[in-house]
């Protein structure tokens, strides 16, 4: 739900005179109602099991119908692959301004053909990346209005450790690590999730996960399920976060000063998580390991529990500030009839 988080971050910085209206292919979209925004859902071809050739006309027809009905001044698309049909919708509703929110850090050599779709938009906004120096993908040198790293939660919105533990139903005392590595069997130490949990427990650190089902299957208990959105608001509950290195997770933990071990997902089609996470490791902001099952993971846990707070302070110092406000200002200028790029 990275796109929803970025869009919500922009929306949070818009003036009250602008009403955000969300259309998403994600079934997580109802979360935007908690922020007071209206939304609609358009199933992806993956969710439908439909071929893309059949889905594309469906997408186009729905998009045109909704743009016609909602009559937005600006349409902001967040993604790295603008779908065919956006061009037709833009042609049909040329009075609206069209913006592509396009995060960078593409794997080198991938997706370059998508850059030509910049022509479909009046403006391309690139949410910044703290690891931008390691970005060698096709979008890195493409024209865009670049803003700082975008997160929904800023340090000022975080609650205290005690409040966070209470809100998440966690014990008041003791060390707690959050493991967010997707699905898996937490009892199987040959897998990422189980290995990470075991290493944390070995260091006297209780374990929290974001999936209720994972916590329920934990033998011997002691694994807590936490559910909240945005969870980053409660990050002070944790002494350490073990996570993949997607755009949002990466920037949330580093911008908010949470000690982190990154286990980059190498299976993504485009997002270069290895480059992003390796950069953070090289800068000494966090530790990056290829797998929680590797012997160096236990050492990384020891290191981060002892020195993680000092290490991540370097990332906080390097943070230029939340780019969401800048992006929102740019969007507002388009609503007001600015030229964009």
């Amino acid at each position: 739900m990275g796109h929803l988080t970025r869009l919500l971050a922009y929306a949070a910085h818009l003036p009250d005179s602008i009403e955000p209206y969300v259309l998403s292919l994600s079934q997580a979209v109802p979360v935007v109602a908690e922020f007071g925004y209206r939304y609609e859902y358009l199933p992806s071809h993956g969710a439908l099991g439909m071929t893309s050739a059949l889905w594309q006309p469906l997408f186009q027809e729905r998009l045109i119908e909704i743009v016609d009905r909602v009559a937005p001044k600006v349409v902001v698309f967040d993604g790295t692959h603008p779908y065919r049909g956006i061009d037709a919708a833009r042609e049909a509703f040329s009075d609206a301004r069209w913006v592509w929110s396009r995060r960078g850090m593409w794997k080198p050599g991938r997706n370059a053909d998508q850059l030509a779709k910049s022509a479909w938009f009046d403006e391309v906004i690139e949410p910044g990346d703290l690891a931008a120096e390691a970005d060698h993908g096709a979008s890195a040198s493409a024209p865009a209005y670049r803003v700082g790293p975008v997160t929904l939660t800023g340090p000022e919105e975080m609650v205290s450790r005690a409040e966070a533990r209470a809100a998440l139903g966690l014990p008041v005392e003791g060390r707690m690590g959050l493991v967010s590595l997707g699905a898996g069997n937490i009892n199987d130490t040959a897998g990422e999730l189980g290995a990470a949990a075991a290493a944390l427990r070995d260091q006297g650190c209780a374990v929290a996960v974001t999936e209720v089902a994972i916590a329920e299957q934990a033998s011997g208990g002691g694994v807590y399920a936490v559910r909240a959105y945005p969870l980053a608001r409660y990050f002070r509950a944790f002494d350490l976060v073990v996570t993949a290195a997607g755009y949002n997770s990466f920037h949330e933990v580093l911008r908010l000063g949470v000690p982190a071990i990154f286990v980059p997902n190498t299976e993504t089609s485009l997002d270069d998580q290895v480059a992003r996470a390796s950069y953070a490791d090289q800068q000494g902001w966090a530790r990056t390991v290829t797998s929680a099952t590797e012997p160096d993971f236990a050492e990384a846990v020891r290191l981060m529990l002892a020195h993680g707070a000092d290490m991540v302070a370097g990332a906080v110092a390097a943070d230029p500030g939340n780019g969401a406000a800048d992006a929102a200002t740019r969007i507002v200028s388009l609503v007001a009839g600015g030229d964009g790029r």
Partner: peptide
Amino acid sequence: SGGVPVIYLR
């Protein structure tokens, strides 16, 4: 002839 077009859908 069955009037059921083939379509891939879960």
